[in-house]
Computed example of a mutant assay.
Amino acid sequence: MSRFIAWLDNHGELSYDFQSYYSGEVGRKAKRLYYERPRLGTLAVMPIIFSEAFVPSARRLFWKPQRIPIGDAHYAMGFAFLVEMSAQDRYYQRARHFLNVLEETRCPGYEEYCWGYPFHWETLLGTIPAGTPLITTVPYVFEAFQQVYRIDGDDRWHRVMRSIARHALNDYKDIPTSATATTCSYTPFPEHSLSVVNANAYRAYLLTNAAIEFSESKYRDAAQRNLNFVLEAQNEDGSWFYARDGKRSFVDHFHTCFVMKALAKIEALTGNTDCTAAIDCGVAYYTQNLFDEGGVPKPFSRAPRLTVYRRELYDYAECINLAVLLRGRFPKLDRRVASSLNEILARWQTPEGSFRSRQLYLGWDNTPMHRWASSQLFRSLCFLLRANGDGQTSNS
C-alpha cells in the first residue's frame, strides 16, 4: 500500500469521476434526452460513449476534478485500519484529516450532518441536484466516524455520529410495500426513487448500527422494516435487481455486493437468521454468475444496456470487502477473492502507484478516480491486511 499512499500524497484528493462526462450541462442534457427520447438521445450520447470507450482521458473536457465525500470516508476507514494494525501516528493523522474534511463538506441547508455528490446527477427519474443527501453515501461516513471514534474516543466524532443517525432516521421517506416492510427514498425527496434495493440495505444497516451504538430502539424498528424490504426483494435464484420498479431490473456486481455487505454486517451485529439465509442464497448466485471463467469479477449477470468496458475496479474492491466479511464460510467465494486479488496486484496498479479505473475492450481507462473506485479499493485492501493480522503494510 505504500506505493499507493505515496501516489495519493502527490496526486492530491481531488479527482475526476465516472460521472464527470455527465456532470456538466452538455453531458446532463444528453443523458436526459436519452432517458426521455431514447432513439434521439442515443445519438446525443454516442460521442460520450465513444470517448469513454476509446479516449477516456477526454472526460476533462466535460467536467472538473472534485472532492467527493464517499471517497473521503473510504480513505478515512482505510487509514484507520492501518492504525489498528500498526499504531502509527502518521496514519492516525491521515484518518483524522479526512474526518475534518467531511465535517467541512456536509450538505448545506440541513440541520443534521449528511453528505451527497458535489455535482448534479442525472438519473432515470430526474435530476438530483448537487448537495442532496444520499442514503448510499451517509452510512459510509457514519462508519468512518465510528471507526476513528473506536480508536481515540473523541466525543466530537460521537456527536457527529448521533447527528448522522438522526438524519438517516428522520429525513428519508418510508413507503409500505407489505405488512412488515417499507422502502426508503434514495434522497430526502421521494420522487428521486423509492425502490432501490441497496439503498434500503444501507439504511437498514446504519440504523441497526445506531440502535446498538446509542441503545435506542427507534432506530431498530425503522431498520427492520427496510431490512424486510431487502429480504422480500431477493429473487428465487438468490439475486437482487437494482430496483423493484420494473424499470431497472438489472443485476450487477458491486450493487449485489452492497446488499450482501449490509446483510453480513447486520447478521454480525444481531445474529439475524433471515440475513443468514439470504446471504447463503445470495452468495451461491453471486459466485456462480458474477465472475468470469477465470474467476475474476464481471460487471453484470443481467446488463441494462451495452457496456463499453470489460471489467470494473469497483467490482474488485467490493468483492474483497464482501469476502473478508464472510471469510471462511464459503470456500468458492474465498477462491474467487484470491483470484481477484492476484489480478489487482498484477495488472491494475500503475507504475506510479495509482489504480486503473476500468479495463476497456481495447486497453485501459487509467484515469485515477477516488470514488470510482480508488478509495474503495484502498479501504478493502487495508481491511484485508487488518483481517490477516499483518502488522506491516505491503509494498503493493
Rank of each mutant, 00 (worst) to 15 (best):
R159P: 03
Y22I: 08
L8I: 04
V55M: 15
C107H: 03
A179F: 13
E25T: 10
D390V: 12
L134A: 03
K261L: 12
Y34I: 02
S301H: 14
I68S: 11
A53H: 03
N289Y: 13
W115N: 02
E111C: 01
P133F: 04
A76P: 06
S396T: 14
R94K: 12
T177W: 05
H158C: 09
P188V: 01
T136R: 01
D245W: 00
Q288L: 06
G153C: 05
T276W: 14
Y21K: 03
T105V: 06
V259F: 01
R28S: 10
G109R: 12
V230T: 07
V230N: 06
L345V: 02
G12Y: 06
G363P: 10
E111G: 06
D17W: 00
P176F: 04
R106W: 05
A323K: 13
W115V: 01
G295T: 11
R310T: 10
I344E: 10
E52F: 00
N10C: 11
P133V: 11
E122R: 00
F250Q: 04
G71T: 11
G353Y: 13
F214M: 04
F142K: 07
H74S: 14
D171W: 03
R220Q: 11
R28V: 07
S375V: 09
F355C: 10
G12R: 09
Y172K: 03
T273D: 05
K265Y: 07
